[in-house]
Write a protein that binds this DNA or RNA. Structure first.
Lengths: 124, 124
DNA sequence: AGTTTAGGTCTCTTTTAGAAACAAAAGGTT
DNA sequence: AACCTTTTGTTTCTAAAAGAGACCTAAACT
C-alpha cells in the first residue's frame, strides 16, 4: 500500500521545520535584538538573559544557515565576530515582533491562569 | 551588592517563559487547528503530523494551564475528550497565524539557503 | 470469552540543553 | 622571559526532555 501523506500534511511538515527554529525562545530574542542593528557575539550574550555560549553559537549558526543572519569574522586577536540580519531576516522581524509583543503584553494573564490552574489542581 | 537585573532584562525573562510555550512547534500547529473549532484528542493527533500521544498530552496540558484551551471530559467508555480555544486562546491566533503563514510562504527560501550553506561548508 | 476503542500513563532509550573547563594567540604587565 | 587578559568559540560531562512502544480501563460488540 502506498503512503497516504496528503498534500496539506506535507506542507505542514515542511512549515514545522521552519517554525522549529524561528519559534525557538532564543531565536525570538536574538532576532529582535539584531533588528536594532549589528551586534557582536558578546553583546548578544550580555543582552539575552540566561543564554549559554554554546546555545548562542548553535542558535546563531542555525540562523546563518537558514539565511536570516550574516556572520562576519575579523581576523584580530582576540577575535571579533559581528552578526547582522540579512534582508530576508528583516522580513521575519514583523511577525516575530508581533508574537514577542503579544507575549510581553499578555504575560500577566498567563501567570494568573497558571496560578489558578495549579490551585485547582491542588484542591483536587 | 544588590542584584543588577535591569527592568528590560526582567521583562525579557518573563516574556521568554510565555514564548517558550507559544513558539513551540507543536503548539503553533495545535492552536491553528483549534482555531477552526473544537476537536477531540484523536482528531488532533491525526492532523498534527508526527506528534506522539505523550507530547500531545503534554502540550495540551500546558496550553490548558496557561489558559489558552479548555479540556472537556465526557464520562463515557471509551472516553471522549474535547479541546477548544478559550477567548484568550483566540486572541493568540492572530500573531500565531501570522508566523505560521510566514513560515509556509518562505519555506522554499529557507531550504534554498540551507542547501547553499551546506554546499559552501562542504567546499571549505 | 475475546476484541475493539479513546485517551491516557509508564518505562526505557535517544536527543538535546546546559554548565564548566579548555583552546588560541596577540598585546600588555611584572 | 613568563604570565595574564581578552573574545569567540569547542569539548566534555551531566541533567532534562523528547520519542517509541507497552500497558491500562471498562463498556459495547462478536
Amino acid at each position: 500500500m502506498k503512503q497516504t501523506v496528503s498534500a496539506p500534511t506535507h506542507t505542514c511538515r515542511k512549515a514545522n521545520d521552519v517554525i522549529a527554529l524561528i519559534g525557538d525562545k532564543w531565536t525570538v530574542h536574538i532576532v529582535m535584538l539584531l533588528a536594532s542593528g549589528t551586534q557582536r557575539f558578546s553583546d548578544i550574550q550580555r543582552q539575552v538573559d540566561g543564554i549559554s555560549r554554546k546555545m548562542l553559537t548553535v542558535t546563531l549558526r542555525g540562523l546563518e544557515r537558514d539565511g536570516y543572519v550574516t556572520r562576519t569574522v575579523y581576523a584580530t586577536v582576540p577575535p571579533r565576530v559581528d552578526y547582522a540580519l540579512t534582508p530576508f531576516g528583516c522580513e521575519l522581524v514583523g511577525p516575530l515582533r508581533a508574537l514577542g509583543d503579544w507575549a510581553i503584553a499578555n504575560q500577566p494573564r498567563v501567570i494568573a491562569a497558571r496560578v489558578a490552574y495549579d490551585r485547582r489542581d491542588l484542591a483536587a
